[in-house]
Design a protein around this nucleic acid. Structure first.
Lengths: 95, 95
DNA sequence: GTAAAGTGGTTAATTTTATTAACCAAATAA
DNA sequence: TTATTTGGTTAATAAAATTAACCACTTTAC
C-alpha cells in the first residue's frame, strides 16, 4: 500500500516536466520553462537529473543559429511515471 | 492544471503520516513509526512540521508511566490533504 | 540497590536536494 | 561597437530531510 515513491519523480518540478512530456512525447527547453514557470537554471539541473536517471533524452540542436534543446521522455521514463502514479495512489486513497 | 503542490504535504513521510491519520482520525507515535518505517527522530521532526502547519494536533500523555504521544489530524489538515489530492491529480493526468 | 538494557521520545549535526545567482557563447538591436 | 536578448550551464547558497547523539524514565537481571 505505502510503497516507496521514486525520489526522482517525487519533486514538483521534475514531476511537472514528466507530466508534460508524457503527453507531448517531445518538448523544447523554452516551452518547458514557460509551462513549468521554472527558472532556466533550475530547469536545466532538473532535466539533467531526469536524463541521468534515463527518464528523458536531451537532444541539443540549433534553429536559426540559436541553440535548441529538445526533450523526449524515454520508455523507462514512461514506466517510472506510471509506477509513480500507482504508488502515490496508495497514499491518496485512490482505488 | 499544474497547481503548486503544498510543500508541507509533498514529502513522502509527511504524506504517509497524513494518509494514515486521515482514515484513523487518531494514532499513536509508535504506531505511525511502525507503519511508516521512519526513525523516531525523523518522525518526531516531521510531526512537528505538520503540527506547526496546523495539520495535526500532537497530544502528549502517559500510559503505564510511559510517555504516549497521540496524533490527530485537524480539519485544516483534512482540507489541505484533499486539496493536495486534487492538485497532484493534475500532474498525474487523473480526471 | 545498582548496572544494563529498553521505551518513547527530542535536539543538534550532517547529508542531501532544490533554488538562485553568476556566468558564458552566440546573435541581434541601438 | 557596446548593449541587450536568447538559450542555456555551472558554481554557490538556501532549504529540506535524515541520521546520530542524547535525555528522562522504566523495567529487568544480578
Amino acid at each position: 500500500m505505502l510503497n516507496e515513491l521514486d525520489p526522482i519523480l517525487h519533486s514538483q518540478l521534475r514531476l511537472a516536466i514528466m507530466s508534460l512530456l508524457v503527453s507531448l512525447e517531445e518538448a523544447e527547453f523554452v516551452y518547458l520553462k514557460e509551462k513549468t514557470k521554472a527558472s532556466a537554471g533550475n530547469l536545466s539541473l532538473q532535466l539533467d537529473k531526469l536524463k541521468d536517471a534515463g527518464y528523458v533524452e536531451v537532444i541539443k540542436t540549433f534553429k536559426n543559429n540559436y541553440p535548441l534543446t529538445k526533450c523526449k521522455i524515454t520508455k523507462k521514463g514512461i514506466k517510472a511515471f506510471e509506477k509513480y502514479i500507482n504508488d502515490i495512489k496508495g497514499y491518496l486513497h485512490l482505488e
